[in-house]
Write a protein that binds this DNA or RNA. Structure first.
Lengths: 152, 152
DNA sequence: CCTTACACTTGACAATGTAAAAACAACACG
DNA sequence: CGTGTTGTTTTTACATTGTCAAGTGTAAGG
């Protein structure tokens, strides 16, 4: 992850290549995973390049609009961002909350269509899988008992 | 939607039948649609039965845990609740933000499985469809221009 | 009725996201 | 290589959403 390559990627996407954008984009690509804005602010401060919270909000918004980042749909609450190249979905553990990427069967978007009869133009369909991760299923993190889930 | 029926539904689900729980449950069933907690607080105040914000948080949490309500996955931000009986997904308009129910092809949960090779026990899969609703596609609400969506 | 466990309320607080204006920097151009 | 324009970053203040803890109230079984 060279500075020059980040610069080029930003310019190619029609954005000005600023130090702050390179820092956020590079961090998300190098660290991988899913990160909230405040998460990124903390990581950047640790790495010796502190950015204001507002700047990180601006940067992730701009980079997401340009397609360089994507917002991970993991339910209500804080927004998570990641730098993956390929479209995929997410598994969220009900017990520990860990987020695990799930490959998408189709490589093109949208990977699912709405049933016929609805006059909706879908350009993207993101799936949230919920359940227990291997560790929690093994009883490693019995933080919350969720017996009596009575969903139909 | 009789008071007695609400009372019975609550008791059947193992919950105490309080005025507040009946009010929230009845409102969501009668009004339909997807509502945030503050939304509900406002509607209840208008209807002459004001409840504290904390109470509404507690009630929707209890009723969701009992399976009487479900949380609608519509992306990061505020949580939305609804009283639908059948499992379904949601379409979210990128322009106006309207949420439209989308029937689920399978009636049993989970309606989607993760690809093989991942050791995950999925009990639920919820899909978020994004795109433009008919009104916005017709140019009725051109609030945001989102040209140059460059997702891979 | 009366008791008791559970629910509701209140007030303060934490976390997350947004708005507006001034200081600053990228980069196209000469 | 300077320089001006335009977009970016920063700061400060604030709005929204959700949580915690302690005290009061009430549903429901005996």
């Amino acid at each position: 992850m060279q500075t020059d390559e980040l610069h080029t990627r930003l310019r190619e996407s029609g954005l000005r290549a600023t130090r702050q954008r390179s820092a956020v984009f590079g961090l998300l690509r190098d660290a991988g995973g899913h990160h909230s804005v405040d998460d990124l602010v903390g990581l950047l401060a640790e790495s010796g390049d502190p950015l204001s919270r507002m700047t990180v909000y601006n940067v992730v918004s701009d980079l997401t609009g340009a397609g360089l980042l994507m917002q991970a749909d993991v339910g209500p609450g804080r927004a998570l961002y990641e730098a993956s190249e390929t479209w995929h979905h997410h598994f969220v553990c009900r017990s520990c909350g860990i987020v695990i990427d799930v490959p998408c069967a189709r490589s093109t978007k949208p990977c699912l269509e709405t049933p016929p009869g609805l006059d909706l133009s879908v350009d993207e369909a993101q799936v949230i899988y919920r359940g227990l991760c291997p560790a929690c299923r093994a009883g490693a993190h019995p933080l919350e008992e969720r017996s009596s889930e009575r969903h139909t």
